[in-house]
Computed example of a mutant assay.
Amino acid sequence: MTTHKLTSTDGFVVLDLDDAPMAIGIVRSAPKVLVDGAKWLARSETYRYAFFDRKVSGASAAVNAPVDAKAEAIASFATELAGDAFSTVHLSAGRGISPDDLAELRSRDPRPESWWSERDALTAAGIVAAAGQAAGGLSGRTVAIETFDAMTSLLPEMFRVAGATVIEPDVSEDASAVLHADVDVLVAGSKVGLIGDANASNVVARLIVPSGPMPVTAKALAAFGRREVTVLPDFVTTSGHLAAWPVDGSSTDAAELVGAAIAQVMTHEKGPLLGACEIAEAFLGTWATVPFGRPIA
């Protein structure tokens, strides 16, 4: 894993696999984005693409700038990324960045227009399919959903259409009410390490479906294992958007793509998350050095 410091502005680009034919990830902006967090996001992307048999490195970039200097800093970032040194690095907008900020990078990005226009809906469809596959169907199931962006705002209605009852706890006095809701399925993922050792015991749901990268820490995963709570692999559940960018005959249906992937790992002896890691690592081992450290916070 290599961290490239930018020369035109205060920022960096993390590339997980140095010799990969391309790298894909997001860029975020804030007054101070931590490199360690960016490294975890890059690793998660590596495992996503490896699970689906794609030779892609994860990437994660940042622009560190105060609000009053952000526009100029992001413009400098985009200009530097458009250079030959980053010709195989393809980034989409994360928190603090708008798609328009990266417009000059789109012309060389291999992802089709449908990926950009449909990725939220496809990602959401994959999350619902993952939950349905793991739960043995959603009809009659209760679901609590942490909504925190445009993609997750699509989930409540999609779960209802699938037959689930969506429970909406009052978060006005307790921001963690969703995490602790008395439901069958918890959909969460607003930040890395959202569910850790300190609050895992308060989670009632028997199935946790990530809607963002690495919401469950290693200690929480171990605790859930002892309680027979199932945690799905975030780098699989959130991969519905890959249906808009098929390769080698892969499915163009997000629900089918993710549902089949979850079916593949549900019976793994180490559980679906660690099982998915092993599948990703097996593919990585055919063309690259398997990186040290799994994408588990």
Rank of each mutant, 00 (worst) to 15 (best):
L102T: 05
S87D: 10
F148S: 11
P272A: 03
A50Y: 08
T142Y: 02
G275W: 00
G140M: 04
V183M: 02
A297W: 14
G96W: 11
I97S: 12
R106W: 05
S239W: 04
T152H: 09
A20I: 12
W245G: 12
T217I: 01
A162E: 09
K219L: 07
D18G: 15
A223W: 03
A75I: 13
A222Y: 07
A61H: 02
A124D: 03
F148D: 14
A175L: 15
M266V: 08
E228K: 15
G271P: 09
A134L: 01
L154P: 01
I97M: 06
V247K: 04
V171G: 08
D84E: 08
T2I: 09
T88N: 13
I262P: 03
A71E: 15
T88E: 08
Q133H: 04
V209K: 07
F86I: 12
V185H: 07
K39V: 13
Q133E: 13
W116K: 15
I262W: 04
V143Y: 11
M22V: 10
P169N: 05
A282Q: 09
R119W: 01
G196R: 07
M1P: 06
A124G: 06
T238A: 00
I167F: 00
A150M: 01
A93N: 11
A62S: 08
I279Y: 05
A121K: 12
A73P: 14
A164H: 01
S107M: 08
E118Q: 15
P295Y: 05
V229Q: 06
V67G: 06
A244M: 03
A42H: 12
R108A: 14
A243V: 03
N202Q: 14
R95I: 06
A134Q: 10
G293W: 01
T88L: 00
A69C: 11
M151V: 09
P295E: 06
S117Y: 00
S92F: 05
W287D: 02
L194S: 06
A59M: 04
S211E: 10
V265Y: 07
A255D: 03
V203D: 05
K55A: 14
L41C: 10
S139I: 15
W115P: 13
D184H: 09
K32Y: 13
L15T: 09
S176I: 02
V67N: 12
S114D: 10
I74G: 13
L81V: 10
G275Y: 02
L273A: 10
A282I: 04
L6Y: 14
P99A: 00
L122P: 09
T123D: 04
G212L: 05
G94W: 08
L6P: 14
A255P: 01
R108P: 07
E118S: 15
F51K: 09
L6Q: 08
S239P: 06
G58N: 02
L232D: 00
G225P: 11
V185I: 11
G126P: 00
H180T: 12
I167C: 09
Q133A: 12
D36A: 15
V56E: 01
G132T: 05
A282S: 14
L138R: 02
A65Y: 01
V128W: 00
F148L: 04
G96F: 10
I127C: 10
P215L: 03
